[in-house]
Computed example of a mutant assay.
Amino acid sequence: MSDPQFSVLLGPDGAGKSTVMAELAERLPTWRALSTDSAFVGPEHALVTQLRRNVVEDVLPALGGAYSVDFLASLLQTAVVHLKDRIEAQEAGVPVLVDSYYYKILAKCRLAGIEESPMYSWWRSFPQPERVIYLDVSPESAWRRSANGARLNPLEHFGTRPQWFGFENYQKSLRKLMLEEVRELPVTVIKEQPSAARTADAVLEVLAP
């Protein structure tokens, strides 16, 4: 059996991946968009949506107390395995675009303090994409999109509460680790665009030249 063919849309927090994925889903009806965002998860996989909600609402607020970083990483692995399963379940010949895959989660686990883990080796053994499209965004723009930190969760900034310098340092570190993870793959970096529509245009040029 040949490896599945797919592309990955990657980017830091606030890059607008979900918005761009939604727009691309309308413009590319023959493509399959895979993500753990609720808009892209079918009812048969409702548990994935529930677990994501539990991570944000229950685990992250109690991280370092009721829940350990290792426990958090174990839950995040369910998202990674779900995406791998959905990639492998696609019909041959159907073009697929995947939101972040395991690259962003791995980087966030490392930033949370788990520098090495047997999970990482397993994730890295998963099928690799034909290309990675990286949506760049400045920390300043991402900070504004987060309502100056009001919409952030603890996996989007350093420090006990969201502040500009903790956010900026986290996002720069996240960018470095994600690009390091995909350095052996064909990567196209799309510079920050003035709108989601323009970003989608730029992604289309890469996916369907």
Rank of each mutant, 00 (worst) to 15 (best):
S7C: 10
P43E: 12
I87E: 02
E23W: 12
K104M: 05
L47N: 05
S121G: 14
I133F: 02
G149C: 01
Y101I: 07
L174D: 08
P162K: 04
W123T: 08
E168W: 15
D3Y: 13
E140M: 12
V55K: 06
G65I: 02
S141F: 02
R86K: 15
P162Q: 08
E140V: 12
P29F: 04
E57F: 14
F167Q: 02
L28Q: 02
W143S: 12
L111I: 10
W122A: 10
S125Y: 10
L204H: 00
L155R: 12
P12V: 12
H45F: 11
A79T: 10
T30V: 07
F6G: 06
F40W: 08
V59W: 11
E205F: 08
A39E: 11
A62W: 05
L155F: 13
T36M: 09
A200W: 14
S38A: 11
E116Q: 06
L24S: 05
F158D: 11
D13I: 14
S74W: 14
L97C: 04
K104L: 07
S195V: 07
V80P: 02
F158T: 04
W123S: 01
H45G: 01
P43V: 15
L177M: 03
T30R: 10
L75D: 00
G93S: 04
Y101V: 03
G93W: 04
H45V: 02
L204D: 01
L135V: 05
E91A: 06
D99L: 03
K84P: 00
L204F: 02
S195G: 01
V187P: 01
L204E: 02
A147L: 14
S195C: 01
L177F: 10
S35P: 03
T78A: 13
A147S: 09
S138W: 09
A200V: 08
C109D: 02
V80E: 03
M21Y: 12
R161S: 15
A147N: 10
S146E: 08
N169L: 07
S7W: 08
G16C: 03
F165D: 05
V132H: 02
K84D: 04
D99C: 00
F158S: 03
A197E: 14
